[in-house]
């Protein structure tokens, strides 16, 4: 190969290397070097076969390929980010729903407390408050795929226990709940753990079957 064609090939590779910037950064990092290598091989083979005309044919094909595939790769990267946005939107919506649920249920409990015996009222209170916290933590872990469903349920129960312990420690001694209220809290924690553990197990089983 003459010095002139060697230098025009190096220039051609340099230009293609610059054009690779059209692809997303992650794609370039993973395959940029290989794409350049393949382009170099194609140029060399076509130049040896048909001279400059061959090199021009490679350029025409590569330019078309780049114009078609770079936007597709950009879209793929964007859709990966959109999945994260979708998870965040679900969590934001869940926060709004949970706040509304706490307000509505709180009002209903205050109204209904007059007709309920103390133990039943305390049980409902703890079922709802622990349930809201438990569901919210589990939802975040499952939606963001930080943990698989079964692990998310265990992690959510640990978080709720830690939260409850922190609240009880912060409360002044005289304001801490009595033995009956503590029992209802433990029972409702067990209820949510059992219900979610069953749901997570079913979900993982059906995923494995399909």
């Amino acid at each position: 190969m003459s010095n002139l064609s060697k230098s025009s090939q190096s220039l051609s590779e340099l230009f293609y290397a610059l054009l690779l910037a059209a692809y997303p950064q992650e794609f370039r990092r993973e395959y940029g070097r290989e794409m350049l290598q393949v382009f170099r091989d194609c140029c060399r083979a076509e130049t040896e076969r048909s001279g400059r005309l061959g090199a021009m044919r490679v350029w025409a094909r590569t330019a078309l390929d780049l114009a078609r595939t770079a936007p597709v790769e950009r879209l793929h990267t964007l859709s990966g980010r959109l999945n994260v946005m979708k998870a965040l939107r679900t969590i934001a919506l869940a926060i709004v729903v949970y706040i509304a649920a706490v307000m509505i249920v709180g009002k209903l409990l205050v109204a209904g407390r007059a007709y309920l015996p103390y133990a039943a009222g305390a049980m409902l209170d703890s079922l709802l408050s622990i349930g809201i916290a438990f569901n919210f933590i589990a939802l975040i872990l499952v939606t963001t795929k930080i943990a698989r469903p079964v692990k998310a349920v265990v992690a959510a129960s640990v978080c709720v226990v830690l939260l409850l312990s922190a609240v009880l420690l912060l409360l002044p001694a005289e304001a801490r709940p009595g033995a009956t209220a503590m029992t209802t809290m433990v029972l409702s924690l067990l209820f949510w753990f059992g219900a979610h553990r069953w749901w997570a197990h079913r979900r993982e089983q059906s995923a494995a079957e399909s």
Binding site: T62, D65, R68, T69
Partner: peptide, 13 residues
């Protein structure tokens, strides 16, 4: 059928 570098490595990925 001629694969360009972008089509080849997009599919490989």
């Amino acid at each position: 059928m001629r694969l360009g570098p972008g089509t080849l490595y997009g599919s490989v990925k």
